[in-house]
């Protein structure tokens, strides 16, 4: 069977999790991988549990939904425990400590940063999703910053281009050095 990686971005409706997954999906597709992106959200436009899943494969994706998560991003307390049953024992967790008060406990590798707070300091809390993508990529090195930039151009609103790129870089730096470039970091890990 082809090698597969499973990623879930989860949080509260309105946090841009589906957009973030679309950007990541486009970046990975550009790298030559096959990606299946599925989503789940509630009928409300704000709030409620929202999640976006990616199954990434170097071959055909036979089953497009996640079954065992390699990476889980949690952006809000509402999503904190919704995916625990799907986590691999050595799964990597990216937590927004601004909005998650009790992250899942276990043998997971947890990276907690105040993503929303950092995003606000960069210019808008709305790019917390992109800071999370930067952190995720700093840990996983799934895509290059070039393909990410192209994906942002393709998928995200133009007015947010510079802020998005800054947010991604900030997240990446956080994950790789543990230090924020332009914002203080409080790690719960």
């Amino acid at each position: 069977m082809a090698k597969e990686i499973e990623i879930r971005l989860s949080g509260s409706g309105g946090q841009g999790l589906i957009l973030a997954a679309r950007i990541l999906s486009a970046a990975l597709t550009a790298s030559g991988l096959n990606v299946a992106h599925s989503q789940s959200y509630e009928p409300t436009s704000r709030g409620g549990l929202s999640r976006s899943d990616l199954v990434i494969s170097d071959g055909e994706v036979d089953y497009p939904l996640v079954t065992e998560l390699d990476y889980l991003v949690i952006m809000d307390q509402v999503a904190a425990h919704a995916s625990t049953g799907l986590l691999k024992a050595d799964a990597v967790l990216v937590i927004d400590s601004s909005r998650v008060t009790s992250p899942p406990k276990g043998t997971f590798k947890t990276h907690a940063f105040p993503l929303t707070e950092i995003a606000r300091k960069l210019g808008s809390g709305r790019v917390a999703n992109i800071v999370a993508l930067g952190v995720l990529n700093g840990i996983s090195e799934l895509c290059t910053s070039e393909s990410f930039e192209l994906a942002v151009d393709d998928q995200a609103p133009r007015g947010f281009r510079e802020l998005n790129l800054k947010a991604f870089k900030e997240g990446y730096t956080l994950a790789t050095t543990g230090k924020a470039v332009s914002a203080p970091v409080v790690s719960l890990a």
Partner: peptide, 9 residues
Amino acid sequence: EVIGHLIET
């Protein structure tokens, strides 16, 4: 709904 909202390469 899954197939309708699924994004695939």
